[in-house]
């Protein structure tokens, strides 16, 4: 894939004629700054940090016995998906010769007080996850990694929609976030998840060396 990887380096828009702005699709794909990620391993470790957080969130939430029946089944499945993402990203980083970051120490505060607080926090995590993948995707150079990251991104969007629906949120702006997903810059994602990290600096250091 050596001849194709360069095509996807962020900012290399050689296939798009100069001066062409894809105005109809202002989705924030190119919003992150060049210094956010230096290579694929940094992007993968960023994703891994978020997946660790999500996997642990659902593990604790599902143990708290706040949901039942079909709803519980959905949340168990979502938790298993997040754990699968952790395993996939870890294996991928190792295969690339990188060092996967460790699981961060987390504290979800009052998220597991009741069903509503659990689902509401889950909804925030899922939508931040969707935006984080989209915001970082432009930095991924290896197309096979991009395929996997896109595949995970889509599943996070599924989670976000279903959790939004379990909460009975309005369809547009709750279950769906418009006709186009929007990327979220790394700094904003990290700010959003910082309250759940016992030591946010440790995580930031781990994903940016």
């Amino acid at each position: 894939m050596t001849d194709t990887t360069a095509d996807l380096i962020h900012g290399n828009a050689s296939a798009v004629p100069a001066g062409v702005a894809i105005g109809a699709l202002n989705n924030g794909f190119a919003l992150a700054s060049a210094k956010d990620f230096r290579n694929d391993i940094e992007v993968l470790n960023y994703a891994l940090a978020l997946e660790y957080l999500e996997a642990e969130f659902y593990r604790q939430g599902n143990k708290a016995d706040l949901v039942k029946g079909k709803e519980k089944q959905y949340l168990m499945q979502i938790g298993a998906d997040e754990a699968s993402h952790v395993a996939t990203l870890t294996a991928t980083i190792q295969k690339l010769g990188g060092t996967p970051i460790g699981a961060p120490a987390v504290d979800f505060g009052g998220a597991f007080e009741n069903r509503k607080s659990y689902l509401t926090t889950a909804h925030v995590f899922e939508n931040k996850g969707v935006g984080a993948y989209l915001g970082a995707a432009g930095f991924v150079k290896d197309k096979m990694i991009l395929q996997a990251a896109a595949g995970i991104f889509g599943v996070e969007a599924r989670h976000a929609a279903v959790v939004g629906n379990l909460l009975g949120l309005k369809a547009e702006g709750g279950v769906y976030q418009g006709s186009f997903e929007k990327g979220i810059a790394k700094a904003d994602v990290l700010t959003a998840v910082a309250p759940f990290l016992v030591d946010p600096n440790k995580v930031v250091a781990a994903i940016t060396y």
Binding site: V155, A157, A161, Y176
Partner: peptide, 26 residues
């Protein structure tokens, strides 16, 4: 995903694909 050459078009396609995933799930 692996075949689109322009990162901008890829981002545009991804922003649509995520919405299709939401639809599929709902």
């Amino acid at each position: 995903v692996t075949l689109v050459k322009s990162p901008e078009i890829l981002g545009a396609a991804a922003s649509i694909a995520g919405v299709e995933s939401r639809h599929a799930a709902i």
